[in-house]
Nucleic acid binder design. Structure first.
Lengths: 234, 234
DNA sequence: TAGTGGTCTAGACCACAAA
DNA sequence: TTGTGGTCTAGACCACTAG
């Protein structure tokens, strides 16, 4: 296999190696040449080859082990990146004009399942915020958020009245860790009413519990209007 | 700000810089010191600092531009990696024993919306495979797959009878690109019957269209049993 | 134990975009 | 124009692990 062009930049090498994999030249489980051999082949240093292979490894195409060499991943479990954006930005990115309407806010005793999910004692008092997000004036999502006062210190009524809470949180109590679950639910009557859709419509519910270091920030339930979809890709 | 410990490996620098960001020392929009300044501070070369900062940039915490310097990302839109695994592996990873039951398979004229989604002429003949996946013997997911014969050449009845199609595809026609959509639907009666659940139950439908280079591989609709959730995290 | 990838250095040149 | 990050080199030592 002689090469007429000798790409010596790491992106070209990456492309080249990936092509060998995707064309089936190098099959899952196959051991590929050592860094030093590829370096000789491409006419560059080991560092440059290493950069390319490392990138393919983190992308899941290769598995690398010291002494074991570099092997084409047996089952390239691909990851589809799911955005966790600011809610209004998500609406903007669809080309629609975002709107925000506060439904309810204030301190409230946490229901047992909320407190439990956050790892807090039952009956603790949290901030409870419910708000409606609009796209071009039409109901789009309903946010149901429980926030831990101790962690979001400084957050007050003046914040959530005018602008979405997540925008304040982003700047003042950014999450370091989160757990996300996506499920389908039959739209409860009260939410369906806000969406102006029939009750029991199948709709998406995204639940997100977030932490700052090891302290719980809060629990967000994001109800989507029936028919709304999450989109991603590889 | 003197440092008593001077971490000189790139992971430590990464941790250190990330901490400055997450503790609010460096706020969104702030310009952070140049590579060469950080290198002096940490007592290492520019390459090592660069490695750490590059990593934080690809993770979305920093934005870097030549001449513009390195800036803390204004809105760190985090990405939650959603696995796109082999179906039986996904079941295994929950600790359950996977099962596979073929429901129906063979050539079939593609419905207009399927052909359109794949960018093919209406009325084209595709492979249509429907199968039930079980977890510990219980119905878990239903796969409804349309495959483009020209792209998955070599796939035949003997393959899909005994083992899931995706496992053959992984080795013989791996995807290079995919579009994924997640939505909530009311379970149609025929599917509900297989799941042994009431019709109209809200359940998740994941639709995936995949390509190999620019050639369409097929369209997969994965129906989840009512109550099933997708899980991810940051 | 020996071989592979992982990391770091000290330097250089280049590409891009801000001033 | 000029300063910043992006990349590459040639070399070195180290950490892990397969044989």
């Amino acid at each position: 296999m002689s090469k007429d062009t000798l790409p010596s930049d790491w992106k070209a090498i990456r492309r080249d190696v990936l092509e060998q994999i995707q064309c089936g030249q190098w099959k899952p489980g196959d051991k590929i040449p050592r860094e030093i051999e590829l370096a000789a082949e491409y006419g560059c240093t080991r560092s440059t080859v290493g950069r390319a292979l490392r990138d393919l490894a983190t992308a899941g195409f290769l598995e690398r082990r010291r002494k074991g060499g570099t092997v084409v991943a047996a089952n390239p479990t691909r990851k589809a990146p799911l955005d966790v954006p600011i809610l209004r930005d998500a609406i903007r990115s669809t080309g629609a004009e975002p709107g925000y309407r506060l439904l309810q806010a204030g301190p409230e005793r946490a229901p047992p399942e909320i407190a439990a999910a956050l790892g807090l004692a039952a009956g603790i008092e949290l901030f409870h915020v419910r708000a409606l997000y609009l796209a071009n004036g039409l109901p789009h999502q309903i946010e149901d958020r429980w926030l831990v006062p101790a962690t979001v210190r400084g957050l007050g009524p003046d914040h959530w009245c005018t602008q979405p809470v997540d925008e304040w949180l982003l700047r003042n109590a950014p999450l370091t860790r989160a757990r996300i679950e996506i499920e389908a639910i039959a739209l409860p009557a009260d939410l369906a009413h806000h969406f102006d859709q029939p009750a029991q419509s199948a709709s998406l519910l995204v639940t997100r519990i977030s932490w700052r270091q090891s302290k719980p920030i809060g629990l967000l339930r994001l109800y989507h209007a029936a028919g709304e979809r999450l989109k991603t890709g590889i």
